[in-house]
Amino acid sequence: MIISYGDIWLFNVSQRFLIFTYPANGDVSYSFKEEMKRGSHIGNIAKDLNLDSSKLSSRNARVDAAGYRKRYCDINLSTGDLIVADMIDREELCGEKLSCVIKRDLVLENPLELHPFSLHIQDINDNSPQFNEELINIEIRESTGRGARFVIEEAHDADVGQNSVQHYSLKKNDNFVLAVDGNTIELVLDKELDREKQEDINLLLTALDGGSPQRSGTVVIHVTVEENFSNYFSCLCPWC
């Protein structure tokens, strides 16, 4: 038989009642940065749950991972502190999700109590923006008019929010400028090309995140200026 009284559940097992209690105002939650070292302090869960820390050991207090492979945190039975048990890699755990939450339970015996709590893992800027290629090759005909646009594949960053890619920068050059609209990155021809002066142009594109310290990634864009068909046929047939 199961009896519910608000946030308290009573289970009748072999004529004995096992009491599971839940915080009346919702789960206790803690927010901390990813990749904290083992043993790092998260918070005093005994104090937050109004538990007697001197009885934690006798009541066999422990963190229950509810079937998950890792607990990620433990309780110090002497102080009631919640500490990091396994270093957390936010990107490995939650990918590109903006919110990364781990739910665990604090279990005590005599009587049996179950206290759910949440761990909110904050992103740190531990990844740099990366382009899929180290070198991008573009072929552009010499006769291409000013204003022509060429789409460049965006950079990617495993971090989220402000720590992800925030803006791009193109190293100053004579022919091209950069246009960015959301995730669309375009190389814009600002000055017409002259193959006789320069057949190959190397441009440096940089992607920057918004973290502190700021991280960046670069890619070289190699532009090959192709000869116009009219010039090509003039060379083959100068009397035409």
Rank of each mutant, 00 (worst) to 15 (best):
Asp181Met: 07
Ser29Phe: 12
Phe150His: 15
Leu114Pro: 14
Leu187His: 07
Val63Asp: 09
Thr206Arg: 12
Asn25Ser: 09
Val28Cys: 12
Phe20Cys: 14
Cys240Ser: 00
Lys47Asp: 00
Glu227Ile: 15
Cys240Ile: 01
Val223Asp: 11
Gly43Asn: 12
Arg195Phe: 08
Glu35Ser: 14
Arg104Ser: 07
Glu139Met: 10
Cys240Asn: 00
Ile221Pro: 07
Phe17His: 13
Asp81Met: 07
Ser216Cys: 11
Val107Tyr: 15
Arg141Ser: 06
Glu142Gln: 10
Ile138Leu: 07
Ile138Asn: 01
Glu139Ala: 06
Glu91Pro: 15
Ile136His: 08
Thr21Ala: 04
Gln198Tyr: 03
Phe20Ser: 15
Gln214Met: 07
Ser143Gln: 11
Thr184Cys: 12
Arg146Ala: 05
Ser143Cys: 03
Lys37Val: 02
Asn173Lys: 06
Ser31Tyr: 09
Val180Met: 07
Glu192Met: 08
Ser4Tyr: 05
Pro213His: 10
Asp123Ser: 09
Pro213Arg: 09
Ser99Cys: 01
Gln198Ile: 06
Lys55His: 00
Ala148Gln: 03
Asn76Ala: 07
Ala24Asn: 14
Ala85Ile: 05
Ser58Phe: 09
Ser31Glu: 14
Gln166His: 07
Gln130Ser: 03
Ser53Tyr: 12
Val165Gln: 06
Val220Ile: 05
Ser58Arg: 13
Ile8Tyr: 06
Ser99Glu: 02
Asp74Lys: 10
Asp126His: 10
Leu119Thr: 02
Ile3Thr: 06
Lys37Ser: 02
His115Ala: 02
Asn175Trp: 07
Gln198Ser: 05
Arg71Ile: 02
Lys37Trp: 02
Thr144Asn: 05
Leu119Tyr: 01
Val13His: 13
Asn137Val: 03
Phe150Pro: 03
Asn50Ile: 14
Lys33Cys: 00
Ala46Val: 01
Tyr68Gly: 08
Lys191Cys: 03
Glu91Tyr: 15
Asp7Leu: 00
Gln130Ile: 01
Gly26His: 10
Cys94Arg: 00
Arg90Lys: 11
Gln122His: 02
Ala24Lys: 14
His120Val: 04
Ser4Phe: 04
Phe233Lys: 08
Ile45His: 10
Asn125Gln: 02
Cys235Gly: 09
Asn12Phe: 04
Ser14Val: 11
Tyr22Arg: 15
Phe20Met: 15
Gln122Ser: 04
His156Asn: 13
Asp74Tyr: 13
Cys100Thr: 12
Asn228His: 05
Ile185Pro: 12
Arg38Thr: 13
Asp27Leu: 10
Ile88Pro: 13
